[in-house]
Design a protein around this nucleic acid. Structure first.
Length: 420
RNA sequence: GGAGACGUGUCCGAGCGGUUUAAGGUGCAAUCUUGGAAAGGUUGUGUGGGAGCAAUUCCACCGUGAGUUCGAAUCUCACCGUCUCCGCCA
């Protein structure tokens, strides 16, 4: 959520930044409602002050045994007027909040300007796209051949885009999860979190999934609970409605969770294999920090994610998402893309975002600074990494001429086998 | 799932229809006293919103939301949560 004061004071600037995302975005309506709302509040406050005084007067008069019928009638009339205006005020408050909740974050000044993923500049590349001197296969064929994933029965159990890992496939998936968690917790001092996989609507609103992206999520019937689309949701909200002390910051947290997404807008896209499924595993990195350090922390977090690809020896590149392509709540975002031979291109495997105080304001996560002032924290997160896509990248990039798949060195102590 | 008790500020805890502007304590900060400290004294000490150049001032907030009333922390209803007992259960 954007700061209404900031909007009020710098309307042109905010509008200009929002239009970098989408020319149709504007804060003009919010400003208009804000003015109406404030005018009304002055009126209501004055009337409430009068009611309060007169009610106290009635108390005093009654104590003296005097008749209060006349004053009571007057106050009742004020009360009725207040009630009317309160209804109006509530409507305006709700409307303003609703508008603000639907306005995305302003892109950071350093976010490149552009309209689609075609405008995302490549920042750097690590390794070379894998070359094969034999006819290589796509991961979905290899998975089937070696019985690592039972695609058909996954669909039978649930629906299309649900997958069933088995045997060495299930073991490899688990190995990747453990490798990621161990690295981040041991070497990088992230606190390991195992959160609930369902979250209520307040939590979903805190990180920005609600109200705008309701259709993307699975909702429980008769309960105010949603299946989480990413660990970002429960982990970022751990400190919702709390005030931390500056000494508590930065907070580094990492969590493995399954992620549930309806993928409602992507029918027909990436229909084969592990790339786009309704339930996938991910290890997420989340940070809460002071505004002064969020840029550095963002870079460090992205490096922690990149390190995973480097230790696995998977070729990748980093791209900067442009203003038209960054996520709703982010002001800046790096995507890490891994080389996928079957696609003949790089595919997203991690998205590392800085949200500034946008999520903190929605979730009300604050800290007391050295001067005792209460301020909003900055929140950050990134995949470290998406497990299913890592699985697919390993299967494809490390397949050999003899038909085997070589397991990366760092995973072998987790898998217990060195090839499939 | 059934029965009961309870949600008040950093924390403990009083208040159960009208000087509540939320008592009292505790914690925290400043300050006085001291050679220094402890003890003690004094003062200050929440959040959000609004008006004003400002000093200042007004409104809201006692789990959440609605209601009753001239007036609600206090009464009513619903929901959420905590605790105790019973039942069920990995």
């Amino acid at each position: 959520m954007l700061d209404i004061k900031l909007i009020r004071e710098n309307p042109e600037k905010i509008n200009e930044l929002l239009k970098r995302r989408n020319p149709e975005l504007s804060i003009d309506e919010v400003i208009q409602i804000d003015e109406e709302r404030r005018k009304l509040q002055v009126q209501v406050d004055e009337m409430r002050a009068k009611r309060k005084k007169d009610s106290q007067l009635i108390g005093e008069l009654k104590k003296k045994g005097e008749n209060t019928d006349k004053v009571q009638a007057e106050v009742r009339e004020i009360g009725e007027k207040i009630k009317e205006l309160e209804v109006e005020q509530n409507e305006l408050d709700t409307k303003q909040r609703d508008l603000l909740l639907h306005i995305p974050n302003t892109p950071d000044e350093t976010t490149p300007i552009g309209t689609s993923d075609a405008d995302n500049p490549v920042v750097h590349t690590w390794g070379e796209p894998t070359k094969f001197d034999f006819e290589y296969k796509a991961h979905w064929d290899l998975c089937e051949e070696k019985n690592l994933v039972d695609f058909e029965r996954g669909v039978k159990l649930s629906q299309s885009r649900f997958i069933l890992y088995r045997g060495k496939g299930a073991r490899l998936e688990r190995a990747i999860i453990n490798f990621f968690l161990d690295y981040h917790t041991q070497d990088q001092s992230y606190e390991e979190i195992l959160p609930p996989f369902m979250a209520n609507s307040a939590t979903m609103t805190g990180t920005g999934q609600l109200p705008k992206f309701k259709e993307d999520m699975y909702k429980c019937v008769d309960e105010d609970l949603y299946l989480i689309p990413t660990a970002e949701v429960p982990v970022t909200n751990i400190y919702a409605n709390e005030i931390l002390s500056e000494a508590d910051l930065p907070k580094y947290m990492t969590a493995y969770t399954p992620c549930f997404r309806r993928e409602s807008g992507s029918a027909g896209r990436d229909t084969r294999g592990l790339i786009r499924v309704h339930q996938f595993n991910k290890v997420e990195l989340v940070k809460l920090c002071t505004p002064e350090t969020s840029r550095d922390e963002h870079e460090k977090l992205t490096r922690d994610a990149e390190k995973m690809l480097e230790l696995l020896n998977l070729p990748y590149r980093r791209v900067a998402l442009c203003s038209g392509d960054i996520g709703f709540s982010a002001n800046k975002c790096w995507d890490l893309e891994v080389w996928m031979p079957s696609y003949g291109e790089y595919k997203e495997i991690s998205s590392c975002s800085n949200f500034g105080d946008y999520q903190a304001r929605r979730a009300n996560i604050r800290y007391k600074d050295k001067d005792g002032k209460t301020r909003f924290v900055h929140t950050l997160n990134g995949s470290g990494l998406a497990v299913g896509r890592t699985f697919a990248a390993i299967i494809e990039n490390f397949q050999q001429a003899d038909g085997t798949i070589v397991i990366p060195e760092v995973l072998r102590k987790y898998t217990g086998f060195d090839k499939i």
